[in-house]
């Protein structure tokens, strides 16, 4: 089977990670920033699965298993924090959440 190379998968993973990072930097809405964090997480899992496949090992796949579990827990807690924040401050724009500043 002639498939795509290791290079191609890693390039996709890197570009996906870069896009997520860009989103974290330029977006002002906390929810969208959180979604971009998820993008970065998924990009790293793609790299892990790629290396696991090309090396013929199982460890990367099992690690992705754990990453997905932790990500689910992280999303639940993060969204609960965002809801609590909205209750207190009535905004989730990053610029306006500056009560620690002065």
């Amino acid at each position: 089977m002639i498939g795509p190379s290791l290079h191609a998968y890693l390039a996709i993973s890197a570009l996906l990670f870069a896009l997520g990072f860009l989103g974290v930097l330029i977006r002002r809405n906390t929810l969208v920033v959180f979604m971009c964090l998820e993008l970065m997480l998924v990009a790293s899992t793609l790299a892990l699965v790629t290396f696991s496949r090309f090396n013929g090992t199982m460890d990367g796949n099992v690690f992705v298993f754990f990453i997905l579990t932790v990500a689910a827990a992280e999303v639940a807690v993060g969204l609960a924090i965002i809801v609590a924040l909205f209750r207190k401050r009535h905004t989730i724009q990053v610029d306006e959440l500056n009560s620690l500043k002065n």
Partner: peptide, 27 residues
């Protein structure tokens, strides 16, 4: 889909189930 191309069928299924099913719905 890329996971399926890498023969990680279970992980693709879990990704769809947990992420696309639960996480995005939560969002």
């Amino acid at each position: 889909g890329l996971f399926v191309a890498l023969n990680a069928y279970l992980l693709a299924f879990i990704l769809l189930l947990v992420y696309a099913g639960a996480v995005v719905a939560l969002f």
